Simulated scan of single mutants.
Amino acid sequence: MRSEQDDHTGAFVAHRNLLFTVAYEMLGSAADAEDVLQETWLRWSGVDLGPVRDRRAYLVRITTRQALTRLRTLGRRRESYVGSWLPEPLLTAPDVAEDVELADSLSMAMLLVLETLAPTERAVFVLREVFDVGYDEIAEAVGKSRAAVRQIAHRARAHVAARRPRETVSAAQRRDAVEAFRRATESGDLQGLLDLLAPDVVLIGDGGGIRRAVPRPVVGAGKVARLLVARRDLLAGALHPAEVNGRPALTMRLDGSLDTVLAIEVADGRITGLYAVRNPRKLSGMDREAGLRR
């Protein structure tokens, strides 16, 4: 006979990838998302399942509340972060890119936009816009009235729309742009880089005070291209294609070890954003493909 503990475990395992995705979208950190899942399990394992009509919704509610608590703590921690802060990159399976809405929401550029929302706004936006959760369920998760949640959703949607990345492009166009960028970077082709980079391209580096990185964002095709050409000797032969956060990206390995993850944003065939994560504490999500689901 199946025990209630088996029911707890079965439901949690069945929805684990969804819960991880919710937590990661809210936090931008794979390590913190895993911690939230552990906290979710501890609370879920003590729930009386008798009155629970929708186990998926109940688990999402617990995860959201735990993520909100952690998000408020992280906000204070990031105020003292050394240098630019970037989300933790995730190694993703090719099928993640097939879900265009999910891949867009996971992109580095979008996660940085979500960072500009207040914690409750971010939770409401993620649950509503990415996971299509109903207003009543969101209200229970964030502890607000349904009317308040609708207002928050409207405000967050407008905020994100004004800052979100430009029009999306096809996966093939992204791959072509990333491969052309790799070749131009490794060969030190300044003109090739200038042709690939959007005039207002931005390069952001995150070393966390542990590894060297550009101390502040570098803006403009000329500045970014010259910086990359100056580091040609370091980059030549070290760049490798990867799927990161549902998008084509590059990784750099030095002496066989992962040194940098370079997420790349493409719009209209040109590169608009380069996000170089070098902080070794943020690279654990590259050890294996992340289980993501909507």
Rank of each mutant, 00 (worst) to 15 (best):
S187K: 12
W41R: 00
D176H: 15
F125Y: 09
M108H: 09
I210S: 08
V201M: 02
A276G: 07
A67L: 01
E289S: 11
S45T: 10
G208H: 05
A267S: 14
R166W: 13
P51K: 02
L197E: 02
D200W: 12
D99I: 05
T64V: 04
S170H: 07
A153M: 06
Q38S: 13
V201G: 00
E79P: 04
R61K: 15
I152F: 04
S45K: 11
L228M: 13
G10H: 14
V22N: 01
Y24A: 00
G273R: 03
H159Q: 09
A263T: 09
D189E: 05
D104E: 13
P241W: 06
A172W: 14
D48N: 15
S257M: 11
D255A: 14
T40G: 01
A57Y: 01
S257K: 13
A14Y: 14
K223P: 11
A158N: 13
A213G: 05
L283S: 02
W41M: 00
L254T: 13
A153T: 06
M1P: 15
D7N: 15
D287R: 10
V218A: 06
G134H: 08
V142P: 00
A147T: 15
S107K: 03
R70S: 07
D200G: 10
M286W: 07
P217N: 05
R293E: 11
P165L: 04
A31I: 15
V214H: 02
G134F: 06
A31E: 15
N17S: 12
P51F: 02
E39P: 06
S257W: 09
A156L: 02
V96G: 03
G188P: 03
G134A: 10
D35W: 11
L234A: 13
V244P: 01
I271Y: 04
E4N: 11
Y24M: 03
G50N: 10
R76C: 12
V169K: 02
V218T: 10
A225E: 04
R56T: 06
R270W: 08
W85E: 08
A33N: 04
Q191L: 14
R216A: 14
S80D: 14
A23P: 02
Y135N: 10
V124Q: 00
S107W: 01
R247F: 11
Q151S: 14
V130I: 09
L197Y: 04
A263C: 09
A139C: 07
Q191Y: 11
G237W: 06
A177T: 05
T9Q: 14
E25N: 11
